[in-house]
Structure formats: structure tokens, C-alpha cells
Design a protein around this nucleic acid. Structure first.
Length: 313
DNA sequence: GGCCAGGCTAGCA
DNA sequence: TGCTAGCATGGC
């Protein structure tokens, strides 16, 4: 067993994280809101184990307390620290983003309403890509169901002290070994099953090298990955945002973002992709973060928790 | 019961 | 180069 603390660059809101996880179900996380905690299984190298993450210190002096259910080697500890800092964007400074949003009267109210909201990133790029392909065109609830079935089919499992199972996302090797028909039985469409297995096989046989993305610009990464069947621009934009935490992506084809921009900018009809890109120009160089806030604004609006900015005026 | 979901491809003009 | 049907199913 191992415990350590990670300071987080303030502000960080556990409440906003919880709200996002509730509207974006992820079977890999267990939420324990009464003590501001999360649990999930991690896989570091070949070992899977359970991690409890406790958010201390509140919005303005946040600290993340990390506890594992088994002891780790020094190398594994270092990898876990790095992965956790990455996933929770512990080093990101939101102040320049908020200052930028203050210059747009439509965005300014979001900085207070959602203060401390950050991305919850995927722990690795393979997982991020597979989850994004599953999410293509499907509602979030059904995408989560399909992801959970894939985890159960092909992922490792670890148990907590009560025997409750925590599934670990399958490795590329495990998915590469699957047959199309196995995913069809889980209610994946024929094409989605092909895209996911083909991608896993491309990673395993090194036809695609995800490590190389680190050295590429956003546009280079989009060119590199959209060469693969089943991977379009939206999918890579999401990978760069939710897998890598790149700050300036705008998935203009995204239906949720289109709904969010229509709401925040009080537009009479749903904006098309060109209109989204035109509006997003002024969000640079923080288009990813502002997209996140606009997504959350629309989610809160749908739950009846957030009024249109113009309705307040 | 119809339409929309955090899209993409193949096929056709 | 640009447009559209089809994909699978859940939720409203």
C-alpha cells in the first residue's frame, strides 16, 4: 500500500468533476461524493491495482491524496504520479483562460458558474481513441454501455476489500485478438467493431505509433490519424483534447458543442460547422477549455440548472 | 412513434 | 469536390 499527495494548481472543483462524471458516465470510476473521493483501477506496465483519489483543501488550495491497494516499485510510482497529474490536469493554469473568457460577455458568466472545472483526461492514448470511436454519433449513455461491455469482455479486473470488481481498460493486444463477431454480440455496429479492432491491430503491429503524436502539431496529428478507416477529424480532435489535454482544439462537428454555442450565444438556430469555427476563432489559443465550459453550460441547461445568459440580462 | 444522439464511410453525381 | 443514405440502439 502506498499513499502520497499531489498539489493541484488552483482552482480545482471536485463538484464540477462529479457533475461531469454524472452526466458522462464512465464505468471505470466509482464516485464517492460524501467524502470527495473517486476510485478506479489503473494498469501500470503489466500490473493492475486499485487507486483511491481524495480531493482535499477545497476549491482554492486543492490537494489530491492518492492511495493504492498494493505497494509499487519506484518506477511504477513515478508512472502513476505522472498519469494522475495528467488525468486531472493538476499543472494547468486556468487563470489565462478565465482572463480570455472575461473579454467575451457571453463567456464571462461561465468562469464563475463553472469555476475550477477541468478536463478529466484519459490515462493513455489507446484507451482515449477507442472510447472516442465508440462515442461517435451515439448518445453518451449508450456509448458508456458499449464501453462497459468491452471492459467486461476484454479487460483485467481487480477487486476492492469488499470484493467489488473494478474493470481495467483492455490493452491494444487484448482488443487486437478479438473477432468482429464478439463485438457485434455486444451490440456494436459492424463498422464500429471493425474500426476498433483494426485500430488495435494497427497499434500492435506498429502501423500506427501513438508515441509519435507528442512531437506533432495538432494538424499533423489529424493528418496522421485520419488516414485510418473510421477515424475522422472529430475523433482526432477529441483524442488531442481528452487524451492529450492539448489546449486549442475545436471539434466543430460536435453536436454537443453546436448545441452549447447556440445556447451561450443565443442563436436562433443550430450553427453549422463553419459558423462554429468562425465563433471559435476568438477563443484561440484556449479553444479546448472554452469548448469544455460551453459543453458544461449546455449540460447544466438541459438539467435545468443554468439559464441562458440573455435570459438574465 | 419519430427524431436525435459529443460521426464516418462508401457510393454516386 | 460535394452530397447523402446507412449504420445500431437508447432515450425523450
Amino acid at each position: 500500500m502506498l499513499t502520497f499527495e499531489l498539489p493541484i494548481n488552483p482552482p480545482y472543483s471536485y463538484e464540477r468533476l462529479r457533475s461531469r462524471l454524472e452526466s458522462h458516465p464512465d464505468q471505470q470510476f466509482q464516485l464517492i461524493p460524501e467524502c470527495s473521493m473517486l476510485r478506479r483501477a489503473f494498469r501500470i506496465e503489466t500490473e493492475s491495482f486499485l487507486v483511491t483519489l481524495a480531493f482535499k483543501g477545497g476549491l482554492e488550495t486543492p490537494v489530491l491524496q492518492v492511495q493504492t491497494d498494493k505497494s509499487l516499485s519506484a518506477a511504477q510510482q513515478e508512472k502513476l504520479r505522472k498519469t494522475v497529474r495528467h488525468m486531472f490536469q493538476a499543472d494547468v493554469d486556468l487563470e489565462p483562460v478565465y482572463q480570455h473568457m472575461q473579454t467575451d460577455q457571453r463567456l464571462a458568466p461561465l468562469t464563475e458558474r463553472f469555476r475550477g472545472l477541468r478536463f478529466l483526461l484519459d490515462p493513455d492514448l489507446f484507451q482515449s481513441m477507442v472510447r472516442t470511436i465508440i462515442g461517435q454519433q451515439l448518445n453518451l449513455a449508450f456509448a458508456a454501455t458499449l464501453t462497459e461491455r468491452l471492459l467486461t469482455l476484454a479487460g483485467d479486473v481487480v477487486h476492492d476489500e469488499q470484493g467489488q470488481p473494478f474493470h481495467v481498460f483492455p490493452t491494444a493486444e487484448a482488443i487486437a485478438r478479438l473477432e468482429i463477431e464478439q463485438l457485434r454480440q455486444l451490440q456494436f455496429s459492424q463498422r464500429k467493431a471493425e474500426y476498433i479492432i483494426d485500430f488495435a491491430r494497427a497499434v500492435v503491429n506498429r502501423r500506427v505509433e501513438l508515441d509519435r503524436l507528442e512531437l506533432m502539431s495538432d494538424e499533423e496529428a489529424i493528418g496522421y490519424l485520419t488516414a485510418l478507416r473510421g477515424i475522422g477529424r472529430w475523433t482526432v480532435e477529441c483524442l488531442l483534447m481528452f487524451g492529450m489535454g492539448r489546449p486549442d482544439l475545436l471539434p466543430a462537428a460536435d453536436i454537443g458543442l453546436r448545441n452549447g454555442i447556440q445556447l451561450v450565444y443565443d442563436l436562433p438556430e443550430k450553427p453549422d460547422e463553419a459558423k462554429i469555427r468562425a465563433i471559435g476563432e476568438s477563443w484561440a489559443p484556449w479553444r479546448s477549455y472554452i469548448s469544455l465550459y460551453v459543453w458544461e453550460a449546455f449540460g447544466a441547461f438541459r438539467r435545468g440548472e443554468f439559464a441562458q445568459p440573455s435570459a438574465d440580462a
